[in-house]
Amino acid sequence: MEFYKGDAEKYKRMVKNTEPKSPILFDCIKAFIVGGGICVVGQILTNNFIKTGYSSDDSALITNIIFILATAILTGLGLFSKIGRFSGAGTIVPITGFANSVVAPAIEFKKEGIVMGLGSKMFVVAGPVIVYGVLTSMAAGIIYYFWRFF
């Protein structure tokens, strides 16, 4: 039996027809509720910090730090992966997903040493987030800088 040119295209269609579909509606409802719920908790926390006298920016920051701490603990206890399996983007998209993507490799790769394992693999997933976030915002800064001359 030989495969010819063109078989790849045909096979691609076969694969597409065979692939099991994700339960998109159910997944989206779960992501909506969990993600929205996290933001509600965030709103309540932020409101409280504003009441105690912090600026709104600082309140948002402290709220995020609390989420990061909570994620680190849940990840360490092995609970975050279980929650994430249920909620999908509901926990990936909030700051919890960023924190989890730092904590999980840090825990996993410490076996390869505290410097070259934990230290260097810590940002293996989240590194690109910082790289491209900073680059995009710098591009905005550059455009804004020159735009001000006109």
Binding site: R85, N100, S101, E108, V125
Partner: peptide
Amino acid sequence: EKQFRFPLDMGNQRPQS
């Protein structure tokens, strides 16, 4: 998982396939 995919404690969903 550690070598080919993600660290075990990452909270993501596995595709159906």
